[in-house]
Amino acid sequence: MKRGVIPDSMNQSDLRDELEGLHPASFGWALWCCHHRWEEAEEVLQTAYLKVLDGSARFDGRSSLRTWIFAVIRRTAWEQHRRRRLSERILTGWLKHESATIRIQDPEESFGGSENATALRKAVASLSTRQREVLHLVFYQDLTVEEASKVMNVSLGTARTHFERGKAQLRQILAEQEVAHVKQ
């Protein structure tokens, strides 16, 4: 069976196999949805798997399984991010005097990796969310722009616009950082 295509009748064990096959790509996507916060990405992925397996996220067959799982992960990451921000705001209000001394470490800084990868992560972090998402889905996940638009829940035209603008902006930032192999 081709990876990422769900048949009409799929039992739980088949679905688990599919999830396992897509796990590295799903984790990469979750990582990007969570701005490379490792623990947050793991939590998002577990919650997304739970949604898929217990049926609270339903596959309607309008796209491939991979596209659908990516959309579930994206939504879960967004929900979790919103919850986290709310709790952080409440906590900051309570611990106002203590918050001044706490410095939250930038995950982009602490992630490590090769020079090019670090430069790319930093450059992509400065793009808008939509641009970042479409570039990741097309270049990192090898999806088409049309598939990316389905994951992002936007029209194809919107996805194309973000893709082109994102590419131009990314090239400019990378050129300023003098990253190797990047054409102006």
Partner: peptide, 27 residues
């Protein structure tokens, strides 16, 4: 095809991420 430069950078990043991907576990 002009996007190969960006594609290669993203591939490098993907290889790094895949090397650190945790094992598949279900909830």
């Amino acid at each position: 095809s002009n996007d190969n430069d960006l594609r290669s950078l993203f591939e490098e990043l993907r290889r790094e991420d895949e090397a650190r991907t945790p094992a598949f576990t279900l909830p």
